[in-house]
Design a protein around this nucleic acid. Structure first.
Lengths: 143, 143
DNA sequence: AAATATTATTTGTATATGCAAATATTATTA
DNA sequence: TAATAATATTTGCATATACAAATAATATTT
């Protein structure tokens, strides 16, 4: 029984995905107050902070593929939470009245998410792990 | 620019998902030699090692929801890589000739995945991180 | 300047995953 | 023993994400 449980826990693929699913669930709860799935909330925050950002830059920042970002932007545009402006082959993204209006709520939700998991993990532990995970992602990405 | 990159890297949701996507891509490559997406490969390995395993146990072991496991099993059954046996309200899962036959290949692929990332990260570092991620997932799950 | 290569974005399609509800079975209580 | 509760699995539906190909625009070369 516990054999089964422990067979794969030393596999980074397995562990990383398990953690991602669990923390995503928490993030969904946290951002539900603004009716946004977490990645959408991140797009809105990022665009609010960087008006005129290129779609490709956003993809790189979020470590998502361009096609995924296109899909996120499509849906956010329908909700009037971003505005796309095509300039030549570039797509520049801008905040909207609505996105600016809810920005504080989004950031508060983000903060609540943070509080939630540092309460469980401890702040230093959580921060160290997060940084470790991030730098690992960067290392593996470059291969 | 690098502001944008660094805004979210201290968020566990963001980092964990980024890492999961990247390592999943590597896992997909590794398991492509057996034409299986990683989660399917894990199911096959697990069932080969634990014949008669319950669907729910498998879900718990893999930290996936029961419905997801049902979907995985459906598709594996079509490919004759598992056999489901309904006993009352339980579903017991068994290996097949085919799944037993490819088990060594799957385990080799798994080992290659491991070699791949420990080459980049260093074995001890990778193992420590993996364990850290796993125990964190467990902690957060229980909340 | 025309031809070609590079770059940025979008679109068609596929898939993994989960939630909530439905179903089916077993256990418990009255 | 009949009624109810608990448990295990499956189904209907929704969604995030990616790959590969298509499109469109700019840069480079000849």
């Amino acid at each position: 029984m516990s054999d089964k449980k422990n067979t794969y826990c030393n596999c980074l693929y397995y562990s990383a995905n398990a953690l991602a699913r669990i923390i995503t669930k928490k993030a969904e709860e946290a951002f539900s107050v603004v009716n946004l799935a977490p990645s959408y909330a991140f797009v809105v925050m990022t665009v609010n902070k960087n008006p005129g950002l290129q779609a490709g830059e956003l993809a790189e920042t979020m470590m998502l593929t361009p096609s995924t970002v296109t899909r996120l932007l499509e849906k956010l545009e329908i909700q009037e939470l971003v505005k796309r402006h095509t300039e030549g082959r570039l797509t520049l993204i801008y905040p909207t009245a609505k996105s600016v209006e809810i920005n504080k709520k989004i950031e508060a939700a983000w903060y609540n998410l943070y509080q939630n998991y540092i309460n469980i993990l401890g702040e230093d532990t959580a921060n160290q792990l997060t940084e470790n995970i991030y730098t690992t992602a960067l290392k593996l990405e470059k291969t």
